[in-house]
Every structure is written in structure tokens, then in C-alpha cells.
Simulated assay, not measured.
Amino acid sequence: MHLKVTIADQKIVTTGSFNYSASAVRRNDEVLVVIPDDTMAKQWTNVFDDMWEDDKNFLFIN
């Protein structure tokens, strides 16, 4: 997965181009969208869980 999504306590979703790195904070032009919505957070959680559990279409490479 290369989702740039954070789901906090199934209450807040963040998404965008932002990487959690020093360069993203100090040098890069980044976008971080914060969505404080329980319903949206639960939907994103369901999508993430479905992808995480799907070993047919998404392969884990270590």
C-alpha cells in the first residue's frame, strides 16, 4: 500500500501528499487535509481493513 492516510481513533482522517519527515515539515510544499468526521473515518477504516486482508489483489513484500 502506498496510501497517505492516517486514521486517528476512528474519528479523524488525514490525507494528502505530506510525508512524516523533516523535509516535509521544513522544505517541501506539501498538502495535508484533516477530516474530523467519525463516519468518514469509519469508512476509511473499513477500506483499509479490506485492503489489508486481501491477499489476492495486494501482496505483502518484505
Rank of each mutant, 00 (worst) to 15 (best):
K11D: 01
W44M: 11
L32V: 10
N28A: 08
R27F: 03
T6A: 06
V13M: 06
V33N: 13
V25A: 12
V5P: 00
A24V: 06
P36Q: 04
Q43H: 09
W44H: 09
R26P: 06
I12V: 09
W52N: 15
T15S: 09
I35A: 02
N19K: 12
K11T: 01
S23R: 08
V33F: 05
Q10E: 14
V34T: 12
S17V: 09
R27D: 14
Q10P: 00
R27A: 11
L32C: 12
N28D: 10
W44K: 10
D37E: 11
N46D: 15
L32Q: 09
M51D: 04
S21Q: 07
I7Y: 01
I12H: 01
A22D: 13
K42C: 07
I12N: 00
Q43Y: 02
V5C: 03
V31W: 03
T6Y: 02
Q10Y: 02
A22H: 10
A8W: 08
K11A: 01
D37V: 04
D9N: 13
G16K: 06
V13E: 05
D50I: 12
A24W: 07
V33Y: 05
N19C: 05
M51T: 07
A8Y: 06
V34R: 01
N19L: 05
D9W: 08
A24L: 12
S21C: 11
P36G: 02
V47S: 13
Y20T: 14
T39A: 14
A41D: 12
N19P: 03
V31I: 12
D9G: 13
M40D: 04
I7E: 05
V13A: 04
T45S: 11
A8F: 12
A8R: 14
V34E: 09
N19D: 08
K42M: 10
W44T: 06
P36H: 09
M51K: 15
N28C: 03
M51C: 05
R27G: 05
D38T: 15
W44Y: 13
V33A: 08
R26C: 09
F48K: 05
A22L: 13
N46S: 13
V33G: 09
V25M: 11
W44V: 03
N19H: 12
D29S: 08
D29L: 08
T39M: 10
D29V: 07
Q10D: 15
F48D: 05
T15W: 03
D38S: 14
D37H: 15
D38Y: 14
N28K: 04
D49C: 14
A22S: 12
V47M: 15
D49W: 13
P36F: 00
K42I: 06
V33M: 07
R26F: 13
D50N: 15
D37M: 12
V47Y: 12
S23F: 08
V47W: 03
A8V: 06
V13Q: 02
M40K: 13
V13I: 03
Q10F: 01
E30T: 00
M51N: 14
A22W: 04
V33H: 10
N46V: 04
V47L: 15
Y20R: 12
I12S: 00
S23Y: 05
N19Q: 11
N19F: 03
